[in-house]
Every structure is written in C-alpha cells, then in structure tokens.
C-alpha cells in the first residue's frame, strides 16, 4: 500500500470521525447530523446497488430490502423484545435469504428487464407491508425504543442511547462506522477473486460461463450481499426515526439509490459514497431556493450527466491520462 493511499484513508477517517463533529459543534448546525447520518446510511444501501451494477445488473429494487430490513428490525424489537444490536444482523441476514429466493428466478433477466422487475419489486414490498397483519398496515409501527445497551460479560461497549445527552452524535458515529466498514468490505470484495469473477460477468456472461465460472451462483451471491447492505441500512433508519411505515421506502428511494451510483461513477468503489453525499447534501442545501429547489437540482443533475457521463470520479481518470 503506497504512502499516499494511507494518507488519503487517514484524512478521510479523520474528516468523518473528528472534523465533522467538531465543525458541527462550532457552527451549531445540529440539523446537519441528521443529514449526514442519512447520507452515511443511504450510501450503505447504495453500496449494495453498486455491487449489482458490478455484475452488470441495473438494480432499482434496493428500497424493497431497506423496507424489509426496517420491518424485520421493528417487529423483532416491538413484539419480541429483541435487542436492537441483535436485530441489526438479523435484518441483514433475513434480507439476504429473501433475496436468494427472489434472485434465483429474476437474476436470469438482463438489462432493462431486470431493472423493471426490481422496480416493481419495490412496489410489491410496499403493498405487502400494507396488506400483512404483522406490519400493522398503513398505520405502520411507531414508538420503537432507542437502541439499548450493548455489553459483553458486563463490559459496556455501547451505552444505552436513551441515557445519552446527544443521541444525534451517537447515531452519526454509528452510521459513519457502518459506512466505513461497508466500503471496506466492498473494496475487499472488488479486489479479490470474487471481484475478478464479477467483472467477467459484467463484460460477458456467456463467455465467463463457458470458461467454467459458476455464473448462476455468483450473481445470486452478489445480489444477496447487496440486499444485506440494504436491510442493514433500513434497520438503522428505523432506529433513528423510531417508526416505520409502508411508505418509508418507495420507488423514488430505489431510483435515488441507483442515481447515487451513476453520479459517483459505476467504475469506482467509492462512487456511490460520493454520489450520495453530493445528491443528498446538495438537495438539502438547495432548500434555500424554495420553489426552485427541484428545478435547480434536476438541472444540475442533467448538466453533470452531459459533462461527465461516466460519473464524477471519472475526473480522476482524465488527470491520470494527461500525465
């Protein structure tokens, strides 16, 4: 690992865990905590979408898994009294298992067909949440407790969120930590044998199958990992908002996850993180423009697409090319 890369990662970690809280503390804009926590969580879900892009599938169904993960966590906490920290991995695993069942048939589809089916999947998730008795229909599940204490052998690792003076900061740190871990995992996957195999799928599925790559298993695996991230992000969202409704994650959110990936750049592991930050934070800042908010936002989106059709991070490519 080169010196500059270690330096870069160090700066990034410092910025996320130290600089942001300090700057927010100084400026007094406490509302930014909520925005940045959302950015971190959305980028976790977007990381999953990115992984499905990596095997050459357009995934517009991440909202379905975020909703599912949220409901799993909410139901376990309110009706079975399970600790939040245990529901977190359970929500992810539940989503991954469901995605294997759904993925086996639909991953045979390609291109826009897969994209449209996953889009419909988001609607299916919303309508199912409306129809099932356990999810409490349109009323949703409310007054979900804050995450409790996590301790091993009497040693407190994470204190009870309800006793904290500043749960916003705690949520931010938790989301940021999760984001860092997610991208670490993603980066590791991409730079492993699995990543190479995924790239072969992206380029030509028939060809890689003919060489002996188990394409069917590989794409289900990638999709399951992707859904795991989606469920995880959904579960934490529930803990923050302390409520969940069938409309917590809708088609619009699924489309947004896809846009974050596109904007950051499909060829770059950290693309979705940057894309989420730019789009979500940008949208938040643009609220000063009042009724012109959407106009400016979408105008900027179109302009970015015209200037950098391969994502913002493709700027790096050009620089290296010129040297």
């Amino acid at each position: 690992m080169s010196m500059s890369r270690i330096l870069g990662i160090g700066t990034f970690l410092l910025a996320v865990f130290v600089l942001v809280p300090v700057i927010i503390g100084l400026s007094g804009r406490w509302d930014f905590y909520y925005t940045l926590t959302s950015v971190a969580l959305l980028s976790v879900a977007a990381a999953g979408v990115w992984l499905t892009f990596y095997i050459g599938r357009i995934n517009i169904g991440q909202g379905a898994y975020a909703l599912m993960g949220g409901y799993v966590s909410a139901v376990l906490m309110t009706q079975y009294g399970v600790s939040f920290w245990l529901t977190l991995p359970l929500a992810g695993i539940f989503c991954a298992l469901v995605s294997v069942g759904i993925g086996l048939p639909i991953l045979r589809l390609r291109g826009v067909y897969f994209a449209m089916v996953t889009l419909v999947l988001t609607e299916v998730a919303r309508l199912t949440a409306l129809a099932l008795p356990i999810t409490n229909g349109a009323k949703g599940i409310t007054s979900i407790p804050l995450p409790g204490e996590l301790s091993i052998f009497g040693l407190t690792i994470i204190p009870d969120f309800a006793t904290l003076e500043n749960p916003k900061l705690a949520f931010y740190l938790m989301a940021a930590l999760l984001m860092v871990l997610t991208y670490l995992v993603l980066w590791r996957i991409v730079n492993s044998r699995l990543g190479h195999l995924c790239r072969s799928l992206q380029q030509n599925e028939e060809l890689s199958a003919s060489i002996g790559v188990n394409t069917a298993m590989l794409r289900v695996l990638a999709y399951a990992i992707s859904s795991f991230f989606g469920g995880l992000a959904g579960a934490i969202f529930v803990a923050i908002s302390q409520s969940i409704y069938p409309s917590s994650f809708v088609v619009q959110d699924s489309v947004n996850f896809m846009l974050y990936c596109f904007l950051g750049g499909l060829g770059y592991v950290f693309g979705p993180m940057l894309g989420t930050l730019l789009l979500y934070f940008g949208w938040d800042l643009l609220s000063i423009a009042r009724e012109y908010q959407l106009l400016i936002y979408s105008g900027a989106l179109i302009a970015l697409m015209l200037v950098l059709p391969n994502g913002v991070l493709s700027l790096l490519d050009k620089k290296e090319g010129r040297k």
């Binding site: 106009l295 989106l301 179109i302």
Partner: peptide, 23 residues
C-alpha cells in the same frame, strides 16, 4: 461507457419536468 448511463439522464429529466410542471 455504459449505456445504462442514460437512465440517470432520463430520471433527471423526469425530475426536471416535474419541477417545470409545478412552476
């Protein structure tokens, strides 16, 4: 590089038209 990029553009246009209709 990838023809899926047009989807971002199409979604951007959808937002844009929404904004124009609203105004």
């Amino acid at each position: 590089k990838r023809d899926e990029s047009t989807m971002l553009l199409a979604a951007g246009i959808a937002f844009f038209l929404d904004a124009v209709i609203l105004l």
